[in-house]
Amino acid sequence: MAEVLVSKKLTKRFGGLEALSRIDLEVQENSIQSIIGPNGAGKTTFFNCVTGFYTPEEGEIFFYTHNLTGLSPDRVTKLGVARTYQNIRLFKNMTVVENILVGMHPHMKAGLIQGILRDRATRREEQESLEEARRLLRFVGLRGRGDMMAMNLPYGEQRRLEIARAVASRPKLLLLDEPTAGMNPSETQDMVHFIRRLRDELGITILLIEHQMRVVMNISELITVLDFGEKIAEGTPAQIQKDTRVIEAYLGRGAASGLGQQQSALAG
């Protein structure tokens, strides 16, 4: 299997603070992989480096054969990486469909002049994009919500819309930043199911940051653990649950001795 994303010795500093230090990470095609770690471990910083919001001080990021290091966010998106945000960031005063149409921006073509003249090709492009947007809405279970203002959607649906908007750019890799944050157990279950479908039915490779251990252990094929900007462990859910360094990072050194309890704590 090919690697979709490879980061090599990725380092990001904010002043004296090393938010990420020499992170090596690989994401296999068609996998679902998680990044976990305590607050401030550098998970979102890693996402920001990949998507071009931050420029790393050292190291490189490759997406297939493209070097993403130092590219602007719009270029990264055009290559096929999409993301969502920890705190939902929709275009609040636009309708649901418009949000998705913005997501399709990179593979639409109409420029200023075509927009004014609205020639045959532009009309067809608009029509096709609209149909695709409707299909996407059905896929994420937002059918019939298309003409609502994004800000009027309930919380869970806003999360789904954000993912739909990311999917609209036809990504090969999707970065999800805490997709189940603030959700109740049944909504969380729906989201896990939904993320699997993104991979299984649309063939999108998924890298997610997640705090809920039940979700992480359930969904991930591979887990990377960060702590204070360093990668401290990597492995399958079963391996991670047994890893002493991970348990230390989460619960403190002393707790690591009573291993049995903590395993169940991590398993959720």
């Binding site: 998507t51 998106t77 960031r89 275009f91 913005v102 921006h105 990179p106 750019s169």
Partner: peptide, 18 residues
């Protein structure tokens, strides 16, 4: 739509390939 996206949230608009 790109203009409106920039109005709403410039960072996210950039992350949408704008």
């Amino acid at each position: 739509r790109a203009w409106m996206a920039i109005r709403e949230d410039e960072d996210v608009a950039m992350a949408m390939g704008i």
